[in-house]
Nucleic acid binder design. Structure first.
Lengths: 357, 357
DNA sequence: CTTCGTTGCTAAATCGGGTTAGCGCCCGTT
DNA sequence: AACGGGCGCTAACCCGATTTAGCAACGAAG
């Protein structure tokens, strides 16, 4: 049915030369190896006419490479949050002529083993181990066969691999600064974790770092967190419950929600209590989930730079791959990607305060 | 640095036999070809001890296969809606020991060409061409080299390739039936498209088919669509605007929104007009986007079965791949995947009506 | 004592490309 | 005419696994 693939032999035959000669011409080493103009032209013409494309599998067999990167995640590939991460990785890879294998472990160590094996069997040139949420992971043994970059994850124990992470501490500072800049100094409450550094789920790096950033920025301005409510899970329903619980005892002037889904629940709770955003209560959040722009008023939030994270991971992986094998393992650097503020309409100066200026 | 891969030659050497002998034993053809028990045991032992794994690239070179499927989409890979589609495809592929190459064309024909070429160069055994939204697409020429399945897309012109699609007509019927079953017969309005079949964006298969289903089911019950508002884009803001526009002239008893984002806007508009869901107005929708469960009250919606679509596409692709090449092109079947209703709390009997029973 | 048949394994070729060493030819020189 | 030296190309081998054809050794039959 489908016509057989055009091989180098076909081109050589059409040009009336031997296979190696055609190979030399096509790999641009013809000049250097004194192939005549005439032969060069014949080969190029034949290759063009036959639409010759080298078989990467064959090259891969010889060189042990595949121009392919493996992207293994717990659930990030299918997380609605982080498709952009794949997109960034995809585009960065494409820029260098690489393709991406996608795999998901669903947190299952055995599945992860099989997947890494399957990728290894296919001679991937590098691996990205990604996590849906920024967290610490156990680095699987025996993956040192090819360069590895961690994405949105930090290794448990000593840092043996380079990692790419969102700059969560800075994000926390930015969120706090949004409120400070609007004039807020009192009645700032946290929804999700806190108020102390101990009230944080231990495996969530993001939660801890955001909190650190918030406390730093507020502290520098001489402002204290007025209080906090933790959420069992960072979903709207728990954000709703936590905020309701808060509103039963106090009247906050501003909320820092630890993600946008929590913020969505917080909006619902504020509505239940007849409080307006941002007139009565300002709200800032994290992630820039699509709903942040759909909520009314639009939610000001510090964005997770998924696209950039994906790109950066691939970029770092390429530098690892290019690195001289002798000095491998030297740099298990942590790369932080900035988290930008998306200003919308959920923050205003505290009610009863003059606008500063 | 990293220890060289264990090859068949290593195993053969360790077992004290030739390469082909080891190969025969490991491929299970030892019995048939009268390899002695002794040799068989030695080879198996050596393979086990050395942790031998055949190099798929090498096998691929010989057989022209790669145990790999290419998943090419316009933007589905990174669409937050459809990660589950990839997940379904991934798992179905994994069940047969296949991996997935992911690629995105972003609707760019040239990019698509390059991507298909890159996949072809890597000897993919089959291709899935996916679309983010159900729509008609131009099938790129020259992809007949390997089996192809269309996912969430139908070819422009004659059906030359098998396609997997959500059963949108049935979904339309189901949405209508939800309202009919609740006792609604009057004041049913559409938000998104309609009321006539001409008021539908031409490239959107989903819009048209949903509308057809709705009109069928209502028609069979002797019920007419009371009216409709189209949306420029199926986003919350346009759903909000369209619903507001509607509410300025009439008081609907029920809304069928053409997707959940429109429904979110509709909720906002209803709230603006002091109308309660579902007491005053029932709302049904399509897609089962995550926000459907986050909205208050929970939105009853007919789900896009992304996971099943992905699985089904791979399943169909495998049957294509297994098919005798002689009869290829025979079946350009369209496979419809059912869309299940997710009942939540946005539908109630019409106000002032008795509950039937 | 030859011949045939069986058993148990391996040599050689294959896939498609890349690399290296070296062959033959032509030219100029002595 | 013999020799040296560049030029232009190709033979041969490599990667790793598989397949086919066939070799060697042995036993049994004639």
């Amino acid at each position: 049915m489908s016509p057989r693939r055009v091989t180098l032999a076909d081109v050589a035959k059409a040009a009336g030369v031997s296979r190696p000669t055609a190979s030399l011409v096509l790999s641009g080493r013809g000049r250097e190896l004194r192939i005549s103009q005439d032969v060069e032209q014949r080969v190029l013409k034949a290759a063009d006419e036959l639409q010759y494309r080298p078989n990467i599998v064959s090259v891969g067999l010889r060189t042990g490479t595949s121009r392919t990167i493996g992207f293994v995640s717990d659930t990030v590939a299918t997380s609605r949050l982080a498709g952009d991460m794949i997109k960034g990785a995809l585009e960065a890879a494409r820029d260098r002529g690489f393709m991406l294998f996608i795999g998901e472990t669903e947190g299952d160590a055995e599945l992860e083993r099989l997947l890494l094996q399957a990728m290894h069997d296919r001679q991937v040139d590098g691996l990205i181990l990604a996590s849906m949420f920024t967290r610490t992971i156990k680095v699987p043994k025996g993956i040192t066969a090819s360069p590895v970059v961690l994405l949105n994850a930090v290794p448990k124990g000593p840092a043996v691999l380079p990692a790419v992470l969102p700059h969560e501490v800075e994000a926390g500072r930015l969120a706090a600064r949004v409120l400070l800049d609007a004039g807020h100094r009192d009645g700032i409450y946290l929804i999700g974790v806190g108020p102390g550094l101990r009230n944080v789920p231990s495996e969530s790096v993001a939660a801890l770092e955001r909190l650190v950033g918030i406390r730093e920025a507020l502290g520098e301005a001489g402002v204290k967190v007025a209080g906090a409510r933790t959420c069992f899970d960072w979903q709207p329903e728990y954000g709703l419950a936590a905020t309701r619980d808060l509103l039963e005892t106090v009247r906050p002037r501003a909320l820092i929600c630890f993600n946008d889904r929590i913020a969505m629940g917080a909006y619902q709770a504020l509505d239940d209590f007849g409080l307006k955003v941002p007139a009565d209560v300002s709200v800032v959040s994290f992630d820039d989930h699509p709903i942040a722009s759909w909520m009314r008023p639009g939610l000001t939030t510090v964005a997770l730079p998924h696209y950039e994270l994906g790109r950066k991971a691939v970029d770092v992986l390429f530098t690892e791959m290019d690195r001289d094998p002798a000095e491998l393992g030297a740099a298990a650097e942590v790369h932080r990607v900035p988290m930008p503020v998306r200003s919308r309409d959920s923050v205003a100066p505290p009610s009863g305060a003059h606008s500063p200026g």
